[in-house]
Design a protein around this nucleic acid. Sequence first.
DNA 1: ATAAAAACTGAATCTCAGTTCAGATTATTA
DNA 2: TAATAATCTGAACTGAGATTCAGTTTTTAT
Lengths: 219, 219
Amino acid sequence: MAKTSERKADLISAAQRALAEHGSAVRLNQIAEAAGVSSGAILYHYAGIDELLVEANRAGMERFYNERLEMIASIPDPAERLERIISLGVPRSAEDEDVRLLCSLGGEAARNTMYAVLLTSLYDRQVGLYQGILELGVSQGVFHLAQGSLTIARNLVALEDAYGYRIIAKHPTLDYSSAVDLILEYARLATGHALLTSKPASKAHPRKITTIQPRRENQ
Amino acid sequence: MAKTSERKADLISAAQRALAEHGSAVRLNQIAEAAGVSSGAILYHYAGIDELLVEANRAGMERFYNERLEMIASIPDPAERLERIISLGVPRSAEDEDVRLLCSLGGEAARNTMYAVLLTSLYDRQVGLYQGILELGVSQGVFHLAQGSLTIARNLVALEDAYGYRIIAKHPTLDYSSAVDLILEYARLATGHALLTSKPASKAHPRKITTIQPRRENQ
DNA sequence: ATAAAAACTGAATCTCAGTTCAGATTATTA
DNA sequence: TAATAATCTGAACTGAGATTCAGTTTTTAT
């Protein structure tokens, strides 16, 4: 047993894990199993599965955004900050939970207004973040933008999103470092700054990709 | 009644329509209704619903690719060809069937190898297409690439994909023409060519967006 | 025109997942 | 400690959707 507030956090975390593993078609039982409780316990805290899924997805997005926000806060140099935020936005492997979550939502957004709003909001916030970095660089004289900062910011976030999908789909040659390089190439062109050569940026919460898990395929 | 070969084409078409409307969680009955037959009739031609869905998705991708291939074949100027293929790859509205289909597959690809392979193949073919146009432009002296043609091609296709998702998610300000403009801005920068000002390119098969359909939301 | 094959229907079946709930277990309060 | 409230379980219920199939209609072949 646990207090409702604590248990809700557990359930959201379990839902995120189950979501990353089974996609948007997760079953209540799968979440219950991930949480180590019965399905009834979940329905004690949430009116229905949809309510929990929305909370889990929202929390996952917030984490994806805030994590990066914190990790670049201490970096003073705009160029390094830009390079770092890009490398943090690309999934390291097809098993990245956060990005898997986001990818599975992309398709839902067409039919579910809530998810559409959440994704749109995340995109816009990321654009704002990038735009801030770009303009900081301009004011410090290190960036010489070839295009408007909004244009560059939008395109950078778009590239990040798209390569996330490619990596989640296990593109045979387009892996993490090539994706980062591709985005950086555009960033160099648009900012007139050589930026850093892409070096492996350590992630705060290393994904658990050490153990190879048995894969379950549909059909 | 119809011959198996003809009926299969009908069913694939119906499945595509149902897929665009209901997403990857389409029901057999929904496809049957779209095709105007009973669910049993579908199972007469296909062993299961998954088999039909794979065929429908594959055919949808082929159409998405081949349609554009044909429409630019008659355009001699590389710059105009590039501009045209970009404007044809971005969905005109959130109701675009082809792109809705592709978006709903993006999330599935994480768990379904078949869809992952199909999407990867589509991406690579599009990249090849773009790369060919870029190098044609170079050989004619109209493009002066600021980056490798593979880099530019990959980034252009990635941008196209990402803005497709934004439009499907009904971004309030990022509509068709702004998305095309954003991609063209990168294309200009990377090719050193002013390209064309984005003018509305007529699509071969105008989507049926004239009638406003009642929307059904989840939750 | 008639027989055989193909295509199809509609109902029955089966399975599975979400939800409900009566009772058990654990925590909290007095 | 006793009483009350909160949390949870496991079984039963419910509905939806995939699949099967016996029989019907349509097409094709002779």
